[in-house]
Amino acid sequence: MTVNVRHLAFGLCLLAALAIWLASFEVPALFRWPQAAILPLGEWLNGALIHLLRETTIGGTTITEVSRFVAETAAWPVTWLIEAMNEGHFYDLSNGGEFWLAPPPALGVALALVLFTHALGGKGPAVMAIATFAFTMLLGLWPSTLTTLIAVLFSVLVSVAVGVLLGIWACRSARVSAMLSPVYDSSRPCRSFPISP
């Protein structure tokens, strides 16, 4: 009778794991990692990031102030569109009057998006879009759904614009291509994560 070394090693590993598990009831220290061996990496990184954001300046302006300005500038069109689509928008006219732009009806927006989905994907995705919009409207989730949809669509448009511009720049400049190549290589596996089961 021949003993398979792999099967024997696997069996011994299982027995060792079972023995450690049973021993952990008697010696609880087997379950805990020693406190002295834990490095405070989180605290170190957090301190470094706080220092970078609050203390580092670019021309007398901190990085926090710059990032807040960029965030507010980028959020303005999204906030305006969400407000206009959910509640409508008032405009002050030059003659002192006001003009109220009413929000589009939810059914009209849903129908336009279903037709757009049908044009891009066909009958199956359009039926799924109808079911999704009916579900969100019946549960009263239409404003939240519209807010999320606007934010996602704006993010996709900005990402595509930045990606196309960086791609053109990298195509025309070997130096930029060399700088962006590690970013592309490290993000390449990310595309398969959302579609993997």
Rank of each mutant, 00 (worst) to 15 (best):
V114L: 04
A110M: 09
F31V: 11
F99Y: 14
T136C: 02
V176D: 08
L146A: 09
L49H: 06
P105W: 11
E87C: 01
T64Q: 10
V5L: 15
L101G: 13
A74L: 11
K123H: 07
P28K: 04
A29Y: 08
P77I: 06
R54A: 04
T2H: 10
S159D: 12
S155V: 00
I50A: 09
L22H: 05
T148V: 12
S144Q: 15
I63D: 04
L115S: 01
A174I: 07
G96M: 02
A178V: 03
V156G: 02
M128S: 06
A23P: 02
G122D: 12
N95A: 12
E98C: 02
W33D: 07
A129R: 07
F193C: 11
S181K: 14
I20F: 15
M137R: 08
A102C: 03
P104F: 01
P105E: 15
F116M: 00
L8F: 06
A161M: 04
H51I: 03
T117C: 10
R188W: 13
L15W: 05
E55F: 05
A131G: 11
A151E: 05
P182E: 04
L166G: 09
F133K: 00
L120I: 06
A131L: 14
S181M: 10
M128I: 06
S187R: 12
S173Y: 09
E26M: 03
R68A: 04
H89Q: 10
M137N: 04
S94N: 02
I63Q: 06
V127N: 08
L49R: 11
L81T: 10
G163D: 05
A131V: 04
F154V: 00
E87T: 06
P197F: 13
D92W: 07
F10V: 14
V114M: 12
W80D: 08
L111C: 07
P103E: 07
T62V: 14
